[in-house]
Design a protein around this nucleic acid. Sequence first.
DNA 1: ATGCCGTTTCGTAAACGA
Length: 260
Amino acid sequence: MDIATWNINGVKARLETCLAWLKEASPDVCCFQEIKSEDASFPSGPFEDLGYNVRTHGQKGFNGVAILSKHPIEDVVVGLPGDNDDIQARFIQASFSTDSGTVRVASLYLPNGNPPDTGKYDYKLAWMDRLYDYAAHLLKNEEPVVLAGDYNVIPAAADAKRPDSWRNDALFLPPTRERFRKLVNLGFTDALRAADAASGIYSFWDYQAGAWQKDNGIRIDHLLLSPQAADMLSGCRIDKHVRGWEKPSDHVPVVISLNA
DNA sequence: ATGCCGTTTCGTAAACGA
């Protein structure tokens, strides 16, 4: 069972690129972030034609997440629990029945948080605190859980080509990394690090200043696995070549393989 | 570097992203 996460930076602008990758990689489950589309205007048809069931949590213009699955989708959770006043569309979760039992997968788009001296950073940290509480709740079930998405967190210096240029950025500031570590230390496994300990592995290259050509990237798209999911992990890869395609997103897909 | 580039919006400049 292959599960992917990919910040596509706008489904309308990225439709052909998304379809091309899904045809190539054919993951069983694919989590999208930044669909930048309302639910009603999400182009589900072309994805359904590839055999996917589609669930979205969209909003106009910004944010928006989706889960696509070749398996029937059950038990959908729309919105990160814990704050009914939060109207930003950044979280959707679905469950799937497999031969190994129920697998829960979340597609999350954690707030960017820049600039750090504003309420945007306060919102990011509060969102991370809320994710921590919800993740702790999920672990109580002792089931396979995959928290996949664009975390907007550079976990360590090894996850950036030029870590010094991110020192004062909301993606790398100590409070951000402390919260990410706290989440992982609940008992989650960073799938990429479980599969490959090398530095220089990135999932995002800015459109600006020739970042892609210079390989000036950062690793901010992660799949965190509950102990039961980590036991099923057989591999994790980043499809870096997609960044070199026509009309690319600034992020590329990250894919895990589970024995499920 | 308040810069670079790309997407979106009751657009034609501004907001947002990372």
